[in-house]
Design a binder for these strands. Sequence first.
RNA 1: CGGGAUGUGGCGCAGCUUGGUAGCGCACCUCGCUUGGGACGAGGGGGUCGCACGUUCAAAUCGUGUCAUCCCGACCA
Length: 576
Amino acid sequence: MKMSKMFVQTLREFPSDAEVVSHKMLARAGYIKKLTSGVYNYMPLMWRVLKKIENIVRDEMDKAGAQELLMPFVQPKELWEESGRWDAYGRELMRLKDRHDRVMCLGPTHEEIITALARDVLKSYKQLPVNLYQIQSKFRDEVRPRYGLLRGREFIMKDAYSFDTSQEGLNKEYENMAKAYTNIFNRCGLPTKMVQSDSGAIGGSVSHEFMVITDTDAGENDVFYCDDCDYSANSNHAVSKLLPAEVDGAKYFTKTEVIDTPNTHSIEELSKFLNIPSTLILKTLVYIVDKKPVLALIRADKAVEETKLMNAVGGVEIRIASSAEIAELMADKGFDAVPGFIGPNGMDGITIIADETVRDMKNFVVGINKTDRHLVGANLSDIPAIENYVDIRLVEAGELCPQCGRPLKVTKGIEVGNIFQLGTKYSKPMKAFYLDENGKAQPYIMGCYGIGISRTAAAAVEAHHDEHGIKWPISIAPYHVVIVPVNIKDELQMKVAGEMYEKLLSAGVEVVLDDRDERAGVKFKDADLIGFPFRVTVGKTINDGLVEYKVRETGEVLTLKPEEAVEKLTDIILSK
RNA sequence: CGGGAUGUGGCGCAGCUUGGUAGCGCACCUCGCUUGGGACGAGGGGGUCGCACGUUCAAAUCGUGUCAUCCCGACCA
């Protein structure tokens, strides 16, 4: 490729709307151009990177025994009604109508389509197991698209679906995919951590996410992990053993009574006012799950993990209640209390979920739905009976590993892939059955496996860059080498550069010749920004028969004869 | 959706307070000069100032509405 003909425009400055480093770099280096919020043009350089990633994914998926196919973007509403997700998926689903007013959507994922396809084709146990995958654009009308390619509304994803006759078969395939995923990300130059996670809107029981660990804002997930064993989990799923805490308030309260606690709207104010640790306060939070209020009870020094709470209620959408909604709830129940004084008593008909931390509390403090008052010295017999305690607690770093008891640590992660055990979540409602050895209809045992292709590219930039630009791993770089003749009017420089270009090309190296009539500085800046793994500079030293060879990743510089440089590059690149 | 902000050539911005018919840097085109880390000089092209309505002799500037974009919170590849 001649640089003078490349469809690319690098910018002197970072675009003002880019926040994270991958977005800034990709936009400035001419890889992407935004069309509208969360929707990007992939320029030729970007498309080459994406194809490289796709091909690594294909190679590993094929090796793992999966078969590639391609399903439509456009999907009919009816299939989504069969699975029950037309309503459950919510506003993230991009919906549209055709000219006959038939309702369709743009696929955010393809469980419905693949299940419908499988039930038509996979009629016998003899045809199973099968794993099918595709690579295509997906559409999710994200509430808040951001961070460039990391969270778009249209993005490229590899999604795979497995069909088995037994849980054992699924377990095996799940392991198989986990291995393939580890290989894929390693080959992309992206070490990942496989962490336990909540299965969210996709559904199912067991699921893991592949996280690229980062210390920047681009990591939108908190990952808790243990250095002493293999435990790691997304914060929406992490569990821990608590550190010892004072949970019996007997030494502060000699009897159970209602007392005045003026202006104690926060836990901090209340514990200061009563001069007790917050571990002796029972906190009551009001959430709205699927439009209905839910009370969450938890020891006040701990925070609620909303995904856990939502799962405990069995809902699909959760948010903390607004003060207006709380006021409405209070009025409805005949109370006059503001947040800070809410409690579980008298909340007939409202779902109450209590965290496990509540179980051991004795002689504690609790709100009683009266502003400026609390009940102190209370015990579990003083509040509505709790049938079962569930874990709705957000884990904190320093709490103890559930497996080995050592302190947990926390870090940020970018989720680039995940794997789910779906079981019969789709096959049963969609009546996707095969006939077993006895001629009996059985639902498929399914798994699904996703990789964000475009997100992986962005994550690679997050992981590999410096202040000058991108430092692509060789395996996914758009080109391997850029050759920079310093002065294109110098005949010898151009001749040698041209010869090296041809030799590298015919050897199978992906090479760009920067034949633009620009000063050397401009070409060097662009080479660093775009992130070619290797640069060969043909300058004045060519008069002594030498060129400069430079490695982007390490900054290593060698002065070599042109043929030596060609040989070295060919060896390194073709061995990868 | 709640909270905050911003819309002026491809990119980054000024002008708006105090209305008078659009400017700077980069990029782009031409010529000259220069050629190892984003040179220099001269000339040139490109914007109905997001959109609509209103106020006014006159609106980028004031008012109302609307759309879009970005940031902070709940989602997920």
